[in-house]
């Protein structure tokens, strides 16, 4: 999915593992451990090769499609693409799109989650089922009608229009996650504020939001990462180079300039991937390295 997102942001399992194999380290258990290590190393190697290609090709002056250590290490792949047209403007556009989407989605889902979390209302259950249904739809399948809709709304090639669409597609998941985070904040604290005469919105702003800061961080990063990595939506909705984000601009290294500049492509890929890899580490911090979004897939 470019947009049918991974529904949760679980963290990598790296906490303390089960210790029972260690406790009874019979020769058989030790052999099992060696076998498991070997099997994992083999699978890990296969997973590593395509990643290693990006890393090595980025520093290779004569990169090809096959992995190999460069004869000479060079930074020229980076220095040659560090200009406005090829790198800075696409990355800036990506930042605008992702930031806009994350902020808009964050604000809308906090507002929506509050009544869903705090009140009993007749429409709540159907609404939440509708939201859940929305998280499941294959958004990529919708891009043809979305294009047609944007033609009628005269919103093609508009960053604002793209932000609005990206926000709408990430809202179901964001509302679901935000509501679950909000449910875990006890209501008794707000009650004290209400007695002191605070309005619901004031209680939300001064009491609930500060308490759910890590949860909000997770939702924000989740939406930001989805928008940052999204290729298909801007590919269909934005066409002028001034508006294209990195996900679409990267395609330029591939087809349009005759032969493919693999070294530059890889260098650009590293620059473009770095922010989301960093944010992923941050999510792991925020969630204490556990299966973070258990709330998101609860049930």
């Amino acid at each position: 999915m470019t947009t049918t997102v991974p529904i949760a942001v679980p963290a990598a399992p790296s906490g303390p593992g089960p210790v029972r194999t260690v406790a009874l380290a019979s020769p058989r258990a030790r052999n099992a451990k060696v076998a498991a290590n070997l099997a994992l190393a083999a699978i890990g190697l296969v997973f590593l090769v395509p990643l290693g290609w990006i890393l090595l090709a980025a520093f290779d002056p004569a990169a090809t499609v096959s992995i190999g250590t460069p004869d000479t290490f060079t930074l020229s792949n980076f220095t040659e693409i560090l200009n406005i047209d090829q790198t800075f403007r696409p990355l800036w556009n990506s930042a605008v799109l992702s930031m806009g989407t994350a902020v808009l989605t964050g604000v809308c889902s906090v507002l929506a989650a509050y009544p869903l979390s705090r009140y009993h209302q007749r429409f709540k259950k159907p609404f939440m089922y509708g939201i859940l249904f929305g998280t499941c739809l294959p958004i990529t399948a919708m891009m043809v009608p979305v294009y047609a809709l944007f033609v009628s709304l005269r919103m093609l090639d508009s960053l604002t229009g793209t932000v609005l669409f990206l926000s709408a597609t990430s809202l179901p998941m964001a509302i679901w996650m935000t509501k679950n985070f909000m449910d875990s904040i006890p209501i008794s604290l707000e009650e004290a504020a209400w007695i002191d005469g605070a309005s619901a919105m004031r209680a939300l702003w001064t009491i609930v939001l500060p308490l759910m800061r890590p949860g909000l961080g997770v939702v924000f990063i989740f939406v930001f990462t989805q928008a940052w990595g999204n290729f298909f939506v801007p590919f269909v909705l934005l066409f002028s180079p001034e508006n294209q984000p990195a996900a679409v601009a990267i395609y330029g290294f591939f087809g349009n300039y005759g032969t493919v500049a693999y070294g530059k492509l890889a260098a650009f890929s590293l620059l473009y991937s770095a922010p989301v890899l960093t944010l992923y580490l941050l999510v792991q911090r925020l969630t204490g390295n556990s299966f973070a979004m258990a709330g998101a897939v609860k049930g």
Binding site: A12, G17, G44, L51, A247, L277
Partner: peptide, 19 residues
């Protein structure tokens, strides 16, 4: 081994899809 291999596998999933 556990942390190295799980990190490699997860990076493949965290990377932008086009990369």
């Amino acid at each position: 081994v556990r942390s190295v291999v799980s990190t490699i596998v997860v990076v493949a999933w965290v990377l932008p899809e086009i990369v």
